[in-house]
Design a protein around this nucleic acid. Sequence first.
DNA 1: AAACAATATCGTAATATTGCAATAAATTAA
DNA 2: TTAATTTATTGCAATATTACGATATTGTTT
Lengths: 108, 108
Amino acid sequence: MGATKTEHFTDKQNQIATIAKALGHPARIAIIEYLMKVNECICGDIVNELPLAQPTVSQHLKELKNAGIIKGSIEGNSICYCIDEKTIEILNTYFLKIIQTVSKSKCC
Amino acid sequence: MGATKTEHFTDKQNQIATIAKALGHPARIAIIEYLMKVNECICGDIVNELPLAQPTVSQHLKELKNAGIIKGSIEGNSICYCIDEKTIEILNTYFLKIIQTVSKSKCC
DNA sequence: AAACAATATCGTAATATTGCAATAAATTAA
DNA sequence: TTAATTTATTGCAATATTACGATATTGTTT
């Protein structure tokens, strides 16, 4: 026990949970915000920006990339990361549906 | 080490991360979907609906409640849970801003 | 009050996440 | 080629999460 029972849930449920989980850490939100600020997609100054060591940042970037939230393209020596808004849109569409459904029905 | 360095991030960053994290598990997404389906807010048939034991479901409900995603009101013997769309809206507004910002800027 | 029902909490095992120092790998600059 | 730069990976310690049996709590019947 201890492991999430992924197989008991639908693909969609797992997809939404995976994306949300990747966004469920303040460092990763901070990375997203930084990528938004420097609208050209600069890479590893993220390390200088965040109060975390380089391996830790690298790991967070990896998780964001695995979840499809950012994408990185090699650019000479460094790597250019940027937000893939399509993935955020999946979440957005999903949550919007929740909000619409819930606001229609009266509750408790 | 091992604990998230919450204090290094802004309140907003922590708020968004907390809500996203609570949604970052397929069981909790399934709970949300069930609450949407039975638009009147029935309570612990969630246990019958999910492939998880009662204490596990109770724990997931607690986390959703702590994050402000659902609210529960005691109704006699049982508890009536329902989605608090205001919290989902916070996420939605935040993500929308990301999508808008990113789609404006060209990238990699 | 006693029996029942619905939830919550406790305790604990299994697993996952977070963070970082050390090190590796890949590219560029000298 | 050697040194420097940038990013990734490994290994490990600390902590958190997930899941559930057992048990407690709270309210409802009878």
